[in-house]
């Protein structure tokens, strides 16, 4: 019995890593645009499907196909920013918000037309497992955890130690001031947004590889998970997003272990509602003013 909970805990950490990746991507997008997005999950799934297309339709090597999807989704992120945000920078914020809702629906429908409505299966990127006692650890799980940590530290380094990264942090705090010290705000916003998209897509690829299945309909659900994780962590805090992601992943899997797998998605909603009622600024966020 103990082994069962332990393996669910390990599943939770794996799942949490994936959520953490998506959450830091989401947090980065929120930071640069100063606005939540409702298209994130759909954009992420679309990106994973791009990789799937290279693999299943064009017959490329699986890892190569998924790696190729990353730069392509980076460019796609630029396009999304142009469509959903660029034209509306000086308009009411609500416009961008609505645009992301619409764009999400569009992309989901387009994905269904292009890739079909059903589940598509993706083989695991790394096969094999290790057994410790009665605990089975898949290589892919270890891979996900390690890759996540690498991405978190790489992002941290980027934001704290590079010119572009510090510029993105600066513009997230004060766009006018950023312009006045010479930041090309338009370019930096596009860069930050696309980087967030790529992080999310990488998370999506890991998810697809872990569960061996993807479908265009997964988008809104994934977007909600990423949103819950960042709200839990405090929406602009990158470390908060990581911790929020891990808490969500572990809680979900423990709920599955204690109740049944049908309760998985309820957990995110419950966490979201509790955080918004009890501490809207999240665990590590600045106090929110309305």
């Amino acid at each position: 019995m103990f082994g069962f909970y332990l393996s669910q805990l390990f599943n939770g950490i794996t799942q949490g890593s994936i959520y953490a990746l998506m959450a830091i991507g989401y947090s980065l997008i929120f930071g640069t645009l100063g606005l939540v997005t409702f298209a994130y999950g759909d954009i992420v799934i679309f990106g994973v499907f791009v990789g799937y297309y290279f693999y299943a339709v064009l017959g490329l090597n699986l890892i190569l196909a998924m790696l190729l999807a990353l730069p392509i989704t980076f460019l796609f992120g630029v396009l999304v920013e142009k469509i959903c945000y660029e034209k509306f920078r000086k308009e009411a914020r609500m416009l961008m918000l609505i645009t992301t809702v619409g764009f999400g629906i569009f992309l989901r429908s387009a994905s269904q037309i292009i890739f079909g409505t059903g589940n598509k299966s993706i083989p695991t990127l790394i096969e094999g497992k290790i057994e410790i006692g009665n605990l089975n650890i898949l290589y892919i799980q270890l891979g996900i955890i390690i890759f996540t940590l690498i991405f978190i530290y790489a992002l941290r380094y980027f934001l704290n130690n590079t010119r572009t990264g510090i510029g993105i942090r600066a513009l997230s705090m004060d766009q006018d001031a950023a312009k006045l010290v010479g930041v090309n705000v338009d370019k930096s916003i596009k860069f930050g947004h696309s980087l967030g998209v790529v992080l999310g897509v990488f998370g999506g690829i890991m998810l697809g590889s872990f569960y061996n299945a993807i479908s265009p309909m997964m988008g809104p659900n994934l977007g909600l998970k990423a949103f819950t994780a960042v709200v839990l962590g405090g929406i602009t805090s990158i470390p908060g997003a990581v911790i929020g992601g891990y808490i969500l992943g572990i809680m979900e899997n423990l709920a599955v272990a204690v109740f049944s797998s049908g309760y998985r998605d309820v957990v995110a909603f419950i966490i979201l509602i509790i955080v918004l009622v009890v501490k809207p600024s999240g665990l590590f966020g600045k106090e929110v003013k309305f």
Binding site: R163, I166, G167, R169, A170, A177, A178, V181, V183
Partner: peptide, 19 residues
């Protein structure tokens, strides 16, 4: 003043040399 409030003093100065 429009200081970058969550950047350190030194990072603020660094931003001055951004261009």
């Amino acid at each position: 003043r429009h200081i970058f409030s969550q950047l350190t003093v030194e990072e603020n100065l660094y931003m001055g040399s951004y261009s």
